[in-house]
């Protein structure tokens, strides 16, 4: 093949340009940390990249939802713990008052305490976390328990479950509806009001008072059951959080494996390319060889 000066020059220029293109590729990979910068670099990586990003965004959101779920369950539990303590105290007082040795004035003092504790229970039922009432189903902007002008107490009947999505397609109920916690209708509160009324009544006998103990016990058992349910839910949420935590690690790893560069490899490639580039440049200086012109005289 006949080779001419212009062919050598063109070739050298082409090789240097190609070498620059490779340098550019490796430098972009190093500075972005990504194997690809546009879909055509690798369509499969690009497509997966979008899916993995969505996946990771989902997992991160679910993790954020967990703190909300904990918020609900823990606050419900601690409120119901206080409610249990108050009920225990009322039970103790009722046991005392059931003694027929207690005089009318003593029973009235106990009745006062029972009334105070009932009010305490009302405030517990109306516990507000942030700006919402946690025991009123979905009507979180209204208090579940209201004291009517005539002194009776009514309890809301909303029993809507509030679900939080904690993993794809898994909805965990996080609230305790008022009827479950405090009895249907005005259950607990009307019993307490009746108890106080009975204690204030001078004709009440010890046996009458003892009759309320059964009712109190059933309310206590109910509360314990609700708290056991909350505890179980808490456990389930913790287990799920563990799983989501490991899912997050997996999602991040998949995203990284898919599109992040292997730094050692790229640096090695870049170094190799640098020497190739130097060689191409060195060759370039030799393109202008002496011709016959330099030797003719």
């Amino acid at each position: 093949m006949r080779i001419t000066q212009s062919m050598l020059a063109n070739n050298t220029l082409k090789q240097i340009a190609r070498s620059y293109a490779n340098l550019d590729k490796y430098q972009t990979q190093l500075s972005t940390g990504k194997k690809i910068t546009r879909p055509s670099d690798d369509p499969v990586v690009a497509m997966k990249g979008i899916a993995y990003r969505s996946n990771l965004a989902e997992v991160e959101q679910f993790k954020r939802n967990f703190s909300e779920a904990y918020n609900w369950v823990e606050n419900s539990d601690s409120a119901l713990d206080k409610a249990t303590q108050a009920l225990q105290r009322i039970r103790e007082l009722t046991v005392q008052a059931s003694n027929d040795t207690y005089e009318e004035t003593q029973r009235q003092a106990i009745a006062k305490e029972v009334r105070q504790l009932t009010e305490h229970l009302v405030t517990i039922a109306n516990t507000k976390v942030g700006d919402k009432y946690i025991f009123n189903g979905a009507k979180t902007t209204e208090p579940p328990v209201t004291v009517n002008p005539d002194g009776t107490i009514s309890v809301s009947t909303n029993s809507q479950q509030l679900n939080i999505e904690l993993a794809k397609g898994i909805y965990i109920p996080v609230n305790i509806p008022p009827s479950t916690a405090f009895g249907a209708g005005s259950g607990l509160f009307s019993d307490l009001q009746n108890l106080a009324a009975a204690l204030e009544n001078p004709s009440t006998t010890g046996n009458d008072v003892t009759g309320y103990l059964d009712k109190l016990d059933s309310h206590l058992t109910n509360l314990l059951g609700v708290r056991a349910e909350l505890g179980a839910r808490m456990n389930r949420i913790e287990l799920m959080e563990d799983r989501i935590d490991s899912q997050q690690v997996i999602a991040e790893k998949m995203l990284s494996d898919n599109e992040d560069v292997d730094l050692e490899k790229v640096i090695t490639d870049l170094k190799t390319q640098e020497s190739v580039h130097r060689a191409a440049l060195a060759v370039g200086t030799r393109v202008i060889q002496p011709t016959l012109v330099d030797f003719l005289r």
């Binding site: 879909p39 690009a46 990249g49 979008i50 990003r53 969505s54 965004a57 989902e58 991160e60 959101q61 954020r64 939802n65 909300e68 779920a69 942030g130 700006d131 919402k132 979180t140 902007t141 939080i164 999505e165 599109e259």
Partner: peptide
């Protein structure tokens, strides 16, 4: 501009996250 942290897919992801947040605090 895909895949990136500013394309349509990312915007949709963020919209989805906002709706998830809303589902936990609808009165907010």
């Amino acid at each position: 501009n895909e895949p990136s942290d500013s394309g349509l897919a990312k915007t949709m992801d963020q919209f989805w996250q906002a709706l998830q947040d809303l589902s936990t605090q609808p009165e907010n």
